[in-house]
Design a protein around this nucleic acid. Structure first.
Lengths: 235, 235
DNA sequence: CACGGGCTGATTGCATCCACGATGAATACG
DNA sequence: CGTATTCATCGTGGATGCAATCAGCCCGTG
């Protein structure tokens, strides 16, 4: 674990994206002060910053907690994500700087390494970073805030994507890696239409997985009652 | 001028939207503490909050300043604004709550009163609030951050819209008020297509005005040199 | 005369202290 | 025995003092 203010910021982001910190988890201000060797002031400022970016929410006199993921907001997520992703993709092709293409490639290599190492945490982070960089390439300060919000919940809803349970999920994961390669090639070639097509393919891939997560595979009605009394959470 | 933390927050937003505080203006932390009867801690937290919403930017060890408006970002503004506005409009029709419709009506009445009173400041604020409410009606936490950013610069770029200089601009302003009435009627009737049409009409109206602001009417090349040495600002 | 180094004032960031409000438990009352 | 009220404790918001960093200025040097 890193120390200092930036370490706290990065760690909290990582832990929220990887669901190490579940939605609605209360953050212990005093505890984090101690762990990162900070006083409460910089910790509170980090909370404000994360709140501005949508990672947490601050309730007056009632502390800071990880942003919730309600059923209602999930529907809104599926409605706008493809639109924003496609727009960001187009703008990225139009506006990217060569230097960013290199950064994208490096991130993709780390992502590929994470998949080969079967490291779900690293996969989540590198995949998220990959799409963040595409956002940066768009150089659009107006659309990026929404992209950021979407990527947070995309990582959280789709985290099971990176924990393949069967051959089919393995195949999808490999396909996802190939998509990323395709993004890099298409962006480098200023091929806007191919990027948009890839955006939708890539979206469809993770959308199907996320729907499984939101509405899990058809268990028999009594399966949970039999096996896990009291362990499941009511949403 | 209000006092307290909320007063500071509201006032800064208002002063930034109305261009009372120009882009790139440094904010005086100590001065604001004194004016609003606060210590530096809550002032700094307000800065963080405003930074998260896109009103200001904080540079490490170099203070807080009003968010800049560069030429490059302006182009990005024109590219994505219609898309986001239209999407928000659709979602608002689908998801609004009756209570919000009342709030929208009240804001529209204040906006109308401001136009009749020829009060540009109030017009900017109420117009901005009107579109914020439509954003709230969408109940889409993913798209609203971008809407917020767009509305900030929409108010700043288009502030001349509310200072009509000739009969044509007066006409446009009246048309704008009528558009708002149209929004209320169409949203109340769940008429999604009419709302989207209105969004584009409304957008076109202010777009034309904003383009005049960005690329002002064709002065003769020597006009500024003759008349206003040193008084014009370089953007 | 131009340029670089060092100093000083001002401003920001961080730590600590204090006050207020919320939460939970114990007790008194119905 | 159940419920409401009070009180104690904890945690958050705000104020203040101190340290670090940055900007501007002066002076020395080439």
């Amino acid at each position: 674990m890193k120390i200092g203010k930036d370490g706290l910021y990065e760690d909290l982001k990582r832990r929220i994206l990887t669901m190490e910190l579940d939605p609605d988890t209360d953050l212990d201000e005093a505890g984090l002060c101690e762990q990162y060797g900070l006083s409460r002031t910089p910790v509170r400022e980090t909370f404000r910053r994360l709140a501005g970016e949508g990672y947490v929410e601050i309730r007056e006199n009632r502390g800071t907690r990880v942003s919730p993921m309600s059923h209602a907001s999930l529907r809104q997520f599926f409605l706008v994500a493809p639109m924003v992703y496609a727009a960001i993709g187009r703008l990225a092709v139009q506006n990217f700087k060569p230097r960013q293409l290199g950064e994208l490639g490096e991130t993709q290599e780390r992502f590929r390494a994470a998949t080969e190492a079967r490291d779900p945490m690293a996969m989540v982070i590198e995949n998220n970073r990959f799409h963040e960089i595409i956002g940066e390439m768009s150089w659009n300060a107006y659309l990026r805030p929404s992209l950021g919000r979407l990527l947070i919940d995309h990582a959280r809803i789709g985290h099971t994507f990176f924990r393949p349970r069967d051959a089919e999920m393995e195949r999808r994961l490999r396909l996802s890696v190939e998509h990323h390669d395709g993004f890099i090639t298409a962006i480098a070639g200023h091929d806007e239409e191919t990027v948009v097509d890839l955006v939708f393919d890539h979206w469809e891939l993770s959308r199907e997985n996320m729907e499984l997560f939101v509405a899990p595979q058809g268990l028999k009605a009594d399966a949970l009652v039999e096996a896990g009394r009291g362990s499941e959470r009511t949403s």
